[in-house]
Simulated assay, not measured.
Amino acid sequence: MTLLIVGATGTLGRQVARRAIDEGYKVRCLVRSAKRAAFLREWGAELVGGDLCYPETVQRALEGVTAVIDAATARPTDSLSIKQIDWDSKVALIQAANKACVERFITFSILNADKYPDVPLMEIKRCTELYLAESGLNYTVLQLAGFMQGLIGQYGIPILEGQPVWVTGASSPVAYMDTQDIAKFAVRALQLPETSKKAFPVVGTRAWSAEEIISVCERLSGKTARVTRMPINLLRTVRGSLRFFQWGWNVSDRLAFTEVLASGKPLDASMDEVYKVFGFDVSETTTLESYFQEYFNRIMKKLKELDYEKNKSKNKKQQPKRTPFKKANTQ
């Protein structure tokens, strides 16, 4: 089976590629920059130059492909809008996959996307799920809540460095999941006929509020967090102001997602049936506490090593200089 992975250089996509390669799939990755994706070639993937926003390049990448795993999504650094990347390009990808007679199509959405019609990204994900369901493709949708990897920059690093940790509104508990675990579900879906033309929640072992995550980080790091709360009404005002300027539309759309994270409603779902269908054991899923424990252990070990090297260098400088000549004895 030849598998095309779209978005393979991203946080989730690279884990999907790694998992698929390890399981023996022939992996092809659609990439915009071969230099940036060099690590994928080193892992054993075939790189095909192209851009999701240019359908003709996608069509070439799909030649001889049996299945597609689409892990692409808009990033904060992208110049294009959420609509252009998460809707226009996804519709084109689905159409191209249909034309190429792809046998399996795996993609990712967001849990509870249908409950937030006023949040652009959520509404786009909902519409994409509907479009895919009507496409005729043999698809599987995995509905995610959030990545544990994103929590390091949001909580771990600021707490270690004594920087402010920003919390918005009534923090919604989120069932974050390690991207390596999400990748396991995505690759396994290729092998399971019972996942065909269905959507499944794929979330962590429990939902965590911002306050609970901060408490875990404080306990594991031995440091106290500087928590700064951002009023949700202020963000709404900023978002409304940005809508008056075309250059601000993309930022405004991203700020809208804070409505989800500050609603107080848990972003979580039962995974009991999902584990049965996919044949996984929940005990093998990374917990948020164990994820942070490994992170802080690694950081603390590195800091100790740096401190040791610093002290060693300092002591060496303080030692008196020795002359290469022996002092002559005088009698």
Rank of each mutant, 00 (worst) to 15 (best):
residue 3 L to T: 04
residue 6 V to Q: 05
residue 8 A to P: 10
residue 13 G to E: 06
residue 16 V to W: 01
residue 21 I to P: 05
residue 21 I to H: 04
residue 24 G to F: 01
residue 25 Y to S: 00
residue 35 K to M: 10
residue 36 R to L: 07
residue 38 A to K: 12
residue 40 L to F: 09
residue 40 L to G: 07
residue 43 W to Y: 06
residue 46 E to L: 01
residue 49 G to K: 14
residue 53 C to P: 00
residue 59 Q to F: 01
residue 60 R to F: 06
residue 62 L to C: 08
residue 64 G to M: 02
residue 65 V to T: 13
residue 68 V to S: 01
residue 68 V to L: 04
residue 69 I to N: 02
residue 69 I to H: 00
residue 72 A to L: 01
residue 72 A to N: 10
residue 73 T to Y: 11
residue 73 T to C: 10
residue 74 A to C: 12
residue 78 D to E: 10
residue 79 S to A: 13
residue 84 Q to Y: 00
residue 90 K to Q: 09
residue 90 K to F: 00
residue 94 I to W: 06
residue 99 K to Q: 13
residue 99 K to A: 14
residue 100 A to C: 09
residue 102 V to G: 03
residue 118 D to Y: 14
residue 118 D to R: 12
residue 129 E to S: 12
residue 136 G to F: 07
residue 141 V to F: 07
residue 145 A to P: 09
residue 146 G to W: 07
residue 148 M to F: 07
residue 151 L to A: 07
residue 151 L to Q: 10
residue 152 I to K: 15
residue 163 Q to K: 15
residue 167 V to Y: 11
residue 174 V to T: 14
residue 174 V to H: 05
residue 176 Y to M: 04
residue 181 D to L: 06
residue 183 A to T: 06
residue 186 A to F: 02
residue 187 V to Y: 03
residue 187 V to D: 04
residue 190 L to F: 09
residue 191 Q to D: 15
residue 195 T to N: 04
residue 196 S to P: 03
residue 199 A to C: 12
residue 200 F to Y: 14
residue 202 V to R: 12
residue 203 V to P: 11
residue 206 R to G: 01
residue 207 A to V: 04
residue 207 A to I: 00
residue 214 I to G: 08
residue 218 E to D: 10
residue 222 G to T: 02
residue 225 A to W: 06
residue 231 P to N: 07
residue 232 I to H: 06
residue 242 L to Y: 08
residue 245 F to R: 06
residue 246 Q to P: 06
residue 247 W to G: 00
residue 248 G to C: 04
residue 249 W to H: 15
residue 250 N to K: 15
residue 251 V to W: 09
residue 252 S to A: 15
residue 270 S to P: 08
residue 274 V to D: 03
residue 275 Y to S: 02
residue 275 Y to G: 00
residue 276 K to R: 11
residue 277 V to S: 06
residue 277 V to M: 03
residue 281 D to T: 08
residue 282 V to W: 03
residue 283 S to F: 05
residue 283 S to Q: 12
residue 287 T to W: 08
residue 288 L to K: 11
residue 289 E to A: 05
residue 290 S to N: 13
residue 290 S to Q: 13
residue 292 F to L: 15
residue 293 Q to L: 10
residue 293 Q to D: 12
residue 306 L to F: 07
residue 306 L to Q: 15
residue 308 Y to P: 00
residue 310 K to C: 05
residue 316 K to C: 09
residue 316 K to R: 14
residue 317 K to T: 07
residue 317 K to G: 00
residue 318 Q to A: 14
residue 319 Q to P: 04
residue 320 P to Q: 04
residue 321 K to P: 00
residue 322 R to E: 14
residue 324 P to N: 14
residue 330 T to Y: 03
residue 331 Q to A: 11
